[in-house]
């Protein structure tokens, strides 16, 4: 029974599973809300895809490959839904813990902050993949899109690598609800909106002003979209996707430690100023 007899790594792994299981229990308990959000995401992805269908009605539409354009938009909607979900789950979970007051019990437990954030990150990735797969399935039924050439495996690898840096970003964003449970979450929407603006989710980044294109180079979403579109639309293999993968690996190596460092600073500030308590 006593954990003092267990090796450190095993104690940390049990805690990672604890965080994953806790989030699963919470998702289960709010199942109807999950259905509402899934419906919202699906409808949203479909309405964005219809923008492509609408382009066929515009003057000069004959120059556009409408089916390819619709697939381009759908991939953007799906990838954005997945990546923003990872980002949101991390910050929302911290906000949740602040509201319930359980963050104090998390912070006084002996497992490390890396374990805490890893547990939340693992759940976010698994949950995001399942939801995105459902939305993709519905979209495939709704639209006659040609994904016969798609290299799903290569797209998944690109997304998996991008998820790492997004977890780093999400951990940075999670500092805001840690310090202010009332308004912190809203601040994270600014970061999210900026990523959406500059990363070429629904348009190629070369239509952006030059200064925004510079910003796009620092967004992992840019490379995730480039890589997964190439894999899904053009059937490109992993070896040809290296140009998208290496920047994501570098960003993951930078953003994850940066996220942990920023979270550590936020936690220390909260402990110095007594901001962790809800009452009492």
């Amino acid at each position: 029974m006593h954990n003092r007899l267990k090796p450190r790594w095993l104690v940390e792994m049990i805690a990672v599973w604890g965080y994953v299981q806790r989030n699963y229990f919470l998702t289960k308990r709010y199942f109807m809300w999950e259905v509402v959000w899934l419906t919202f995401t699906t409808v949203n992805a479909m309405s964005i895809t219809f923008i492509g269908a609408g382009a066929a009605q515009r003057p000069g539409a004959e120059a556009i490959n409408i089916q390819e354009y619709m697939t381009f938009l759908l991939i953007g909607a799906l990838i954005w839904s997945y990546l923003s979900m990872i980002f949101d789950i991390l910050s929302e979970t911290v906000q949740w813990e602040r509201w319930e007051g359980t963050i104090e019990y998390t912070f006084m437990s002996p497992t490390s902050r890396v374990t805490h954030l890893l547990g939340m990150g693992v759940y976010a990735v698994v949950y995001g993949i399942i939801r995105t797969a459902i939305v993709l399935g519905v979209a495939m039924l709704a639209f006659d899109l040609d994904l016969s050439e798609a290299n799903y495996w290569a797209a998944l690898v690109v997304l998996a690598v991008c998820s790492i840096s997004l977890v780093g970003f999400g951990v940075v964003a999670a500092v805001m609800p840690l310090l202010s449970p009332e308004k912190g979450q809203q601040v994270t929407y600014i970061v999210s909106a900026l990523l959406l603006l500059v990363s070429g989710v629904y348009y190629p980044i070369n239509v952006l002003p030059e200064w925004m294109q510079v910003m796009a180079q620092f967004s992992p979403v840019t490379y995730a979209l480039e890589g997964s579109r190439a894999a899904l639309l053009g059937g490109v293999g992993l070896s040809q996707l290296w140009g998208s993968i290496w920047p994501l690996l570098v960003m993951g190596a930078v953003f994850v430690p940066m996220g942990l460092f920023v979270f550590h600073l936020g936690e220390s500030y909260a402990k110095r100023t007594g901001k962790l308590k809800r009452s009492g």
């Binding site: 104690v11 049990i14 805690a15 604890g18 806790r22 319930e100 437990s109 002996p110 809800r278």
Partner: peptide
Amino acid sequence: SVEASFFKKLSAMENLLYGAKLYGVT
């Protein structure tokens, strides 16, 4: 503490199992 902080939607058992895992108890 004076305020019993829990995930209010989760059951007592789920909260206890979660709390135990943070200390390495399966």
